[in-house]
Structure formats: structure tokens, C-alpha cells
């Protein structure tokens, strides 16, 4: 049985979808969970639902000051889950530079800023877990998602390089690459496209957020102490 008691875990983008499922799971395993999102009200509401001492805070990943303020409020953490992500899909020829910057900014630079802010505490403690949520799209690409795929592939490089730097400090850095998961992000996809994706998924179904959360929670546990720099797909066989 995994046990995360006495660990403080921060999950970005945890007011819904995969992030919320991860926050819930970590809390069930005994961690004190920090829920963050772009709506403070929603973050507090989700934290209340989760219970078990969870706390909700506003966080804007594009704003260094917002990240620093959060750090001041909650102090150092043991587990960081860089989950928050956005999409601004468009065919490459029609993709604007703003949509590129926005997605790279939140999905990739956000991971850099968050990790930079919170890793010092882990180095001092000589214990830490960082799990970055990437995507199978970062591994195999996808039509209309050049910006998203670039950010997610970037997260994989980030994970592997940082894992090497921090290994001697007993801090593991891993990535989890979900395939198509039933969340608000995939709910908006056109039915026809969903059917097409479904055909390509060997398991012939979309995954559930909980199926991602279980892998993340394992990587956060003591049981995963010798795993670092890995990318684990949770995609029903897609990639």
C-alpha cells in the first residue's frame, strides 16, 4: 500500500480533469494537498471536496510573482505535480504566434518557473518527487497541435535533463504521458474526430483521469525511489 503521509504535495491545474483526480488520489494516500487553479474560488471548493486538510489557492503560471506568492503562503513542498496545461489548437498554417507563445508559456515555461521556485526546498531536504504531465501528443504528434506537441515534447527533455541533475539529491523527476482521457479538454473534440481517435486506440476507449492518477501516485511514493527520468505512457496502447 502506497503511503504519502507527512508529505506536502502541490498539483497545478487541479480544479478539474486529470489534476483533480491526482490531487484526490494523493490526498487519499495521506499527503497534504495544495490545489491550484486560475480561479481561487474553484480551487478552494475542490480542496474542500477533497478534504483531509487540502488547501486551495489561486495560481497564474505565466506570472512569476503569483508563483512566489504561493510559495510564501504554503512554504516548501515534498511533491510537485506540474499538471496544468492549455490548448490553442489550429492548423499550423493558421496558428498565430500568440497561440504559440501562450501554449509554450503556460505548458512549458510554467513548468520551468514552478520547478525553479520549489526545488530548492527539496534539495535542502534531500527528498523530493517531481512528476510532469506531458502527453502522447508530445511523443507522436497530432494534427492541429504543433504548439501543444512542442510544449509537451519540451517537458520530456526537461524531465530527463533535470532528473540527471537532481538524482544525487534523492529527488526523482519523471513524466507521465496520458493519451486520450475523458476530461473537459477532450470533451470539446468533434464527435467525428473522437471516433477516429478511438479507432487508433488499441483499447478502443478513452482513459479515465483516475487511471492517470494511479501512475502519478506510484511515482510519488517510496516504492518508486529508483525510477527517474522516465516517461510513462497511460494511453491504452496508443503510444
Amino acid at each position: 500500500m502506497l503511503n504519502l503521509s507527512n508529505k506536502k504535495a502541490l498539483v497545478t491545474g487541479s480544479t478539474r480533469g486529470i489534476g483533480k483526480a491526482i490531487a484526490k488520489r494523493l490526498s487519499q494516500l495521506g499527503a497534504k494537498v495544495i490545489v491550484t487553479g486560475r480561479s481561487e474560488e474553484r480551487a478552494k471548493e475542490v480542496a474542500k471536496q477533497i478534504g483531509n486538510g487540502a488547501e486551495g489557492y489561486y495560481l497564474n503560471l505565466k506570472d512569476r510573482e503569483s508563483i512566489r506568492e504561493l510559495h510564501e503562503k504554503i512554504g516548501d513542498i515534498d511533491i510537485l505535480i506540474n499538471n496544468a496545461g492549455i490548448t490553442k489548437d489550429n492548423l499550423f498554417l493558421k496558428m498565430s504566434e500568440e497561440d504559440w507563445e501562450e501554449v509554450i508559456g503556460v505548458n512549458l515555461t510554467g513548468v520551468f518557473l514552478m520547478t525553479k521556485e520549489f526545488v530548492k526546498g527539496m534539495i535542502k531536504k534531500r527528498w523530493g518527487r517531481i512528476v510532469n504531465i506531458t502527453s502522447v501528443v508530445g511523443l507522436v504528434g497530432n494534427v492541429g497541435q504543433v504548439n501543444y506537441a512542442s510544449a509537451k515534447a519540451g517537458i520530456i527533455g526537461f524531465t530527463k535533463a533535470l532528473a540527471k541533475e537532481l538524482a544525487s539529491r534523492n529527488i526523482t523527476v519523471n513524466a507521465v504521458a496520458p493519451g486520450f482521457i475523458e476530461t473537459d479538454m477532450t470533451k470539446g473534440l468533434p464527435e467525428e474526430l473522437k471516433r477516429k481517435y478511438m479507432e487508433e486506440i488499441p483499447m478502443k476507449r478513452f482513459g479515465k483521469p483516475e487511471e492517470v492518477a494511479s501512475v502519478v501516485s506510484f511515482l510519488c511514493s517510496e516504492e518508486a525511489s529508483y525510477i527517474t527520468g522516465e516517461v510513462i505512457s497511460v494511453s491504452g496502447g496508443l503510444a
Binding site: 530548492k120 534539495i123 541533475e165 537532481l166 544525487s168 539529491r169
Partner: peptide
Amino acid sequence: ADSLDVVELIM
């Protein structure tokens, strides 16, 4: 000391 130790010391 390793390179990360040196950075930590400086900090």
C-alpha cells in the same frame, strides 16, 4: 563537493 554542492554553498 560536486557541482550542485558548490551552487548550494554559494546560495
